[in-house]
Each structure stands twice: as C-alpha cells, then as structure tokens.
Design a protein around this nucleic acid. Structure first.
Lengths: 346, 346
DNA sequence: CTGTTAGCGCCTTCAC
DNA sequence: GTGAAGGCGCTAACAG
C-alpha cells in the first residue's frame, strides 16, 4: 500500500519517467508539468524509494566515514566536518547525501568489514579517518579493498593517514612527525633534559610518527631516547602510564603525551601524586581538542586542523574540490604553547 | 563487469536462488552446497548489491541516528553506544547494520529533512537523540513524520527526548527536571542564596526542563528566580554568559550552567576575571562528560548515563530488547559532587 | 519536452 | 533441498 512513482505519475497525468525527471531535477521539464508533478507528490505524500533509485542508477547517495571511536572528539570533529561538506546541490535526487559513520574501534577486521559493507551499499565515497595499523597482512588486504572500491567508482579519501600508493585513494596526511618534533624542541628549549614519553598503541602510524618526531628532536640535541610507555589513546591509559614513567624515571621534568586525552590523564596522575604542573613537571599533549584550552593550567599541545581537514576530505570525496597534486597533501600542525610547560626548576 | 549473484550461481553450479539463500542464511541449504557457493563467492570476490537486496526484500540494514552535533561528546557518546548495539560487523551475513549519523545542528528543518531521507532509504530504525524543539508547527510536522515512519515499519526511538504520544515512537527520556532540581538543592544546602543560571537555547525541552528543575528548587526554598542568561550549549556561550551574569548580579556566589561545556566556559570567564573556584564562586554543570572530572577543580555536575541510554536505544531500535511499558522509560541522572562547589564565603 | 521500453540485481513465492 | 519465474520501484536510453 505504499505510494510509488507510478501513482504519482497517474495522479499528475504524466509518465513515470517525467516524474523521475522532476524529482531528480537533472532534465528539462516544462514548468507547468513540474508544478503538477510536485503537487501530486505533495498530495500523495510520496517519498522516493532510495534502494530502487540506487539500483536503477547504480549509484547511491551514501558516504561512508570510518572512525576509531565516534565518542572521541578527535574523530567526532572530523566526522562532523566531513558531513557538513558532503551535502548540497549537484548530487542526485535533491543532492542530499547521507553519512554512514562506522566505528572500527581501531580493529583491522572491522575496518575491512565496514569497507565491504560500504562497498555493498555502493557508497558514493568513503572517508577513512585516523592513523593506519602497521600490520603487513592487514595493510595488503586494506589496499586491495580500497583499490576495488576506487575501481568501482567509489572515491576513497584518507584523512589523517599516510598515503596508500596504488590504491587510487587520495590522502590528507597529518604531519605527526613534524609536530612531535617541534613539541619536543620546545621542551628542550625550555631546558628540559629528562623527558618521559607516553606513546599510543604500537603498530599504528600515528603513534610511530609522533614518537619518531619526539626522538628526532632528542637526537638532534644529542640526547638519548627517554623512558617510553605505550598504551591506548585515552585518559586512563595516560594516568597509568604517567605513574609508570615516574617510577622508572623519578627525575623527569616533563612528560609528552601522544595526545590530549592521554595528557589529561597524565596530569591527573601528577596532581594525585602531589606534583604541580608545570612547576614540578611540564606536560604536553597533541591535537588541541577543545577541552585542552580549559585545563588548568592550559595544555601545551600541537593543534591539528581537524575540522578543516575533515571538511576538505568531504569536499574531495564528493568531487567539489580537486584532489591535491599526486593525490597527497600534508596537513601541518601548529605548536600551541600554553601554561602546562615551563622551564624545569633549579 | 561487476560480479552478480548469477555469476556466483553459475560458478557454483546452482541456481541464483540458492546463492541468495546461502548468503542470507535464513533457509535450509545442504552443507556441501553452501560450501561450494561460499567458495565461489570468495573466488569471484563477490559483494552483494545492497540496493538490489533492499529493493527486493523491501527492507534495509540502515539505522539512522539523528544528533545535534556529532563533534559534541554528549552526542558522540550516545551515537557510539547506539552503534555498538545495532549489530554491526561481527555477526553473520544479514545481521549487519550500518549507522547513518545525521547532524541536524539543532535545526528543525534539517531534522525533518533527514527523517525524510531516512524514510527514503527505508531505514530499519531511527534513533533521535537530544531534546526537542518546542515549536508547535514543527512538533506537529515531526509527529506526522514519525508516525509515517512507524507506519512503514521503521522503528523510531527517542533518546534523551520527551515522549511523542500517538506517533508509535518509543522514548527514553532523561530526567532533566529532577537532575536540575537536585543540583540546585545541593547548592542551596551549601548555603548559596544568590545563584546565576546559564540556560541553553530557548524553545528546547532540555533547556526548559533543566531550568524548571533549578527554579523548583529555589521556589521550594522560598527564593525567587535568580539571574538567567540563555545561549547555545557551548563553551564560548558559557564564557560570555558568565560575564553577563556577573555584570547583572555582582553578588552571586554560584553559577549553574545548562551543561558541562557551558560550565567550562563560565569557569574560564571566572578565572579570567580573577575569581577563584569555588572560593569566590561555585560552578556546576550537567551531563558529566568525560572531561569534567579533569577540570581543576573537578566539576560538580549531574551524571547522565549517556552510553547506557544509547545502547538501550540501539537494542530497542533493532528489536533486541523489548520496549518499556507504555513505550516510555525515564532515565535518571546522578548528582556528582566535586570540587567546583563549596559553601559561599563569609 | 515527454512517453515507451527495458532492464538494474536480487528475493521469494511456487513447484519439484 | 533446490530450481524457475515474476516482480520490487526506479532510471535511462531511445523515440517521437
């Protein structure tokens, strides 16, 4: 008993094709006819059948967005930005595209599964956010999957992830290495010599690059690698890791965290153990999430233009912006020096 | 070109119908046959055509989630929880649902537009998060739309929004009024008598209920309404509003904010104007977002079980949990007393 | 500018 | 347990 295009056509006394043309707006239709059709649509309260259109046109208005965790503002900001740019005119059937957000939880299998699901939906485009997992087998499977997607006409854009050559995917890479390096250079410049590092999970490009940047700065200053602890990118991991660092290196005067959430946890651990920031220990994060400016003292960090990057990814994904030369663009971070870092005592 | 079900059938030497049955797993198929089919699927790298299945089966595996702003953890947490329960990857073929997250930005029109888009996709279910807009015309249009959705078999679940009687939608309502009341009672108990209130945008149920709870507590204590400023639910609005409150009511000893982000901004304003929290002014928020425990001092607030509520909404939306009696359940908040509130000086 | 004619790829009664 | 047909609702050539 659902209303179909044919019903609308009958009521408007035109052919189904004409109704389709009016609804998709990509074909010339006489104003009077259009008027009649739209009125019929309204009167019958007709809603186009998406699956049927997609099947017939072999194209859908779905855009997939892969994120590690949508509850994490790092991903939420990018996802929101992508979304804000994928709609608008130019698309089919009113030009309204829908964002399918997929939480991978950082799991390689789910990443692949979601891409298959998106492929099944014949998604118009896919934006994959966040760093990649550095497992040879998975990388290969992922590359194959991305290649199949691009072959099928689905635009694939990596946002905050290194390029995947040969897959046809466009990459907006974050300069995690450079940001990590500048951050540590800042601490070295303040006079710190014993710096603990709380890294993210192993086997992730983001983790590795930020750590490499940190160590590059140390090496350039003639210093050896400091104590390092790995853990998830969340607050409680930062808390635990800070305690561990303090145990292993009681003389440290600064802690660099892999991201702001981790830095938040580390700060709490320092406070809970009676240390003051930055008087006793300086703390720095990465990303500059919104809350970072409101910590006390405000967090020194590296600002990543997450919104801008996501928006650009969305535009490229929907063909509203040309892809960067070579399909790769690097997005740089900006060092934000705030109150949580200061010269060491003594 | 693209591999279809028929290709798989040919390779496995069975009929298309059999392949369909294997893939959907809902009909008995001989083990040997299934084996052959799955091998063919694998060899041909076949991926089901979602739109085609949806059309034929007149059902899709898409679940819509409406949020005001996915970059806001309040919504991100709920969206993530819904997603974790709707049966994404991990299950067998057929039970894999995708979440379509729609950012309404709090706009009534976009809310309706997205619902229409979801209806067009023949979404399996729709979860609408966050408070409702209290505009008669919009409420009516929204109710009509929800009714049409439920009539078409789409389950509609409201998460953190008052019930919409007669629409067939299930509601998990937040007890904003009760939470707001308990929070203010806490401040009154500490001895505060001049309390400023930073409310959310007008014409939203969440705003109104929290404010009503606040005023109910004041009234019960025989106190008149205090100074109130309305604004968006974000940090900068809180900053500005706090300055405005201080101007209008220099003697206030406490500020209650409509939510934690607003409280964060208000706190910053207090600090920037040389006031100490809670010594000079107590501050309280609402929601207990993850960052709230890490502010200094930690924020007194009302904890809303966002994850639990979202997860439950997801289960109800996918029929894995029965709907509550009468289609309505109230979710209560918990007062979290922390360091940002203390007795007023003097 | 508008109607006619074929499918798009799959699911789903029916038979066997 | 499996195959054969019909149709889901729409779009996209073609004509006219």
């Amino acid at each position: 008993m659902t209303v179909t295009l044919a019903d609308v056509a009958a009521r408007a006394q035109v052919s189904p094709a004409t109704v389709s043309r009016v609804l998709n707006g990509n074909y010339p239709v006489a104003a009077g006819t259009r008027e009649r059709v739209l009125r019929a649509v309204d009167e019958l309260d007709y809603v186009l059948n998406g699956p049927a259109s997609s099947l017939a046109a072999s194209a859908s208005d779905l855009v997939g967005i892969l994120v590690n965790d949508i509850a994490d503002p790092f991903f939420g900001i990018m996802a929101g930005a992508v979304q804000s740019e994928i709609g608008g005119p130019g698309g089919r059937a009113g030009g309204e595209r829908l964002a399918v957000v997929c939480n991978t939880g950082g799991s390689p299998e789910r990443e692949l599964t979601y891409l298959t699901l998106l492929q099944r939906q014949r998604a118009d485009a896919v934006v994959i956010t966040g760093g990649a997992i550095e497992d040879a087998e998975h990388m290969e499977a992922l590359a194959a999957k991305m290649e199949r997607l691009t072959d099928a006409g689905t635009r694939v854009v990596l946002c905050g992830r290194p390029p995947a050559p040969g897959t046809g995917a466009v990459a907006l890479t974050f300069d995690n290495r450079g940001g990590g390096r500048r951050l540590t250079e800042h601490l070295l410049g303040l006079g710190h010599r014993v710096i603990g590092y709380i890294a993210g999970p192993e086997e992730r490009t983001t983790t590795r690059h930020r750590l490499e940047g940190h160590r590059a700065a140390l090496a350039a200053a003639g210093l050896p690698d400091g104590a390092t602890v790995h853990g998830p990118y969340d607050r409680s991991a930062g808390y635990d890791a800070a305690l561990e660092l303090l145990r292993r290196e009681p003389s440290l005067t600064a802690i660099v965290a892999a991201n702001d959430s981790v830095a938040l946890g580390a700060s709490a651990a320092l406070r809970d153990t009676g240390r003051r920031i930055p008087d006793d220990v300086s703390v720095a994060g990465f990303d500059d999430l919104p809350f970072s400016i409101d910590t006390v003292p405000a967090l020194t960090t590296v600002r990543l233009p997450l919104h801008e990057a996501g928006a650009r990814a969305g535009r490229i994904a929907t063909g509203r912006e040309n892809e960067p030369p070579g399909g790769v663009a690097t997005v740089h971070g900006e060092l934000m020096v705030r109150g949580s870092t200061a010269p060491p005592r003594g």
